[in-house]
Design a protein around this nucleic acid. Structure first.
Lengths: 232, 232
DNA sequence: GATTGTCTGCTGGTCAGACCAGCATGAAAA
DNA sequence: TTTTCATGCTGGTCTGACCAGCAGACAATC
């Protein structure tokens, strides 16, 4: 016999849910100012402490920003908010990294195929400039993780699909969070740049099949730069 | 002139940070019970309200679970907590249906291939139950949009990749928001169920190639049921 | 002896009221 | 016109109070 798992919702949770709902429905838009805590308390007929607990929670989720002496405003959602790396990054374990790479292997080759079809001359120019920056940064011996990730973002942008861009941003950001040991593998940095150049060349030639295949190989290579103990 | 970025940290934030730090450092392990709010209040020499705001925030982040009458315990970290599907939804909210469907065409066939490899008997059982529910709901003439989307979520879960599940959740939710006109196309509802059953069968048979192809066709069919406003 | 009931002390949930520090606005002073 | 400052707002924090629910100890009952 299964019994009802009594539905018990705390007041502050209810308030938080309601506010989140308002934001999601677009009734509260980024930049909008919320009523003061005391107003909310009166309007919703709950104590100010409940309101405060809800607002603090939303602030922790980066949904609102609370400014003392002024009020609370809805924040513009940031790409970096899709992950809670700042607080939860430490728990990105091996299984998570594997899942991220797996997802990347699904999306990125498909996205580069689109890029081969849709990349404009501006897209290609941006990629070219970045590759040159990559090279100078590399010869200067400076860290290249950011630039390397940027290449893949630009590649995704060349597919002219914002959804894919967002996904790639999220994946790369989480992978970066986990840390790379690219510098520890002799010669990898140079190989990475070479592979980026090769991919760029194939995209410029609109060779979708080859580009997708090259990219997939590149992902597999780069996978080795992430700590992946327990990998099968 | 830049002025001192005054160390403006709120007490409740400081408490939350400290608790998060304790979890990160492993001093507080999953399953551990935190001191009572009153104890914490006394030990840290801050008011109970500050403690509560901090704890509520941690609860919102899924770091702890608060049980009334018992206390607060550190939760086992879930990989699904790291990626916020809701924010992803916000970020890609303005994208056109075409982009969403395109992204889906990239991800879902690849994910169903994984599902063919990894689906457990429990996964298959869940899918089967859902399909039966789908059928009864359909014959009852009730709306099936939710159930239809749920099938694809379960399919993603069968791939045992939380990242993919999150992506599919975001995509489907946004597509649902855009509204479907499935009911307006005579016979489509029945066709959809039939295709779901066919896909399920192929997954159960571990026929990855056929399942991926069938799914792709299914996506193309269902694409016609979405409003393509903003389409070029 | 095993079950049931009850009492008591804990825990979180909520509220009201109070006080502080800082921002914003507008009136008064320069 | 510009500056000053008083006032009323806002969030930040604390305290004390009360409620509901859990848990353990213990007594009453079968």
């Amino acid at each position: 016999m299964i019994f009802t798992p009594v539905n018990r919702v705390t007041t502050s949770q209810a308030v938080a849910d309601q506010l989140i709902g308002l934001v999601r429905q677009g009734i509260l838009k980024p930049g909008d100012k919320l009523p003061s805590e005391r107003d909310l308390s009166e309007q919703l007929n709950v104590g100010r402490s409940s309101i405060r607990e809800a607002l603090q929670s939303l602030a922790m989720l980066n949904i609102i920003e609370i400014m003392p002496g002024y009020g609370a405003v809805v924040k513009e959602p940031q790409s970096s908010d899709v992950l809670r790396a700042d607080v939860l990054g430490f728990l990105i374990g091996d299984s998570m990294a594997r899942e991220l790479l797996e997802a990347r292997e699904m999306i990125e080759p498909a996205s580069v195929r689109l890029a081969c079809l849709r990349a404009t001359s501006e897209d290609l120019e941006r990629l070219k400039v970045l590759l040159d920056t990559h090279e100078t940064t590399l010869t200067d011996g400076k860290p290249i993780n950011e630039i390397s990730a940027r290449f893949h973002i630009l590649l995704a942008e060349a597919s002219h699909n914002q959804v894919v861009v967002r996904f790639m941003e999220s994946i790369l950001e989480l992978l970066m969070q986990r840390g790379r040991k690219a510098e520890l593998i002799p010669g990898y940095a140079a190989q990475e740049l070479a592979e980026h150049r090769a991919i760029f060349q194939l995209v410029a030639e609109r060779n979708a099949d080859a580009a997708a295949e090259m990219l997939l190989r590149h992902i597999v290579h780069s996978a080795a730069t992430y700590d992946m103990k327990g990998e099968s």
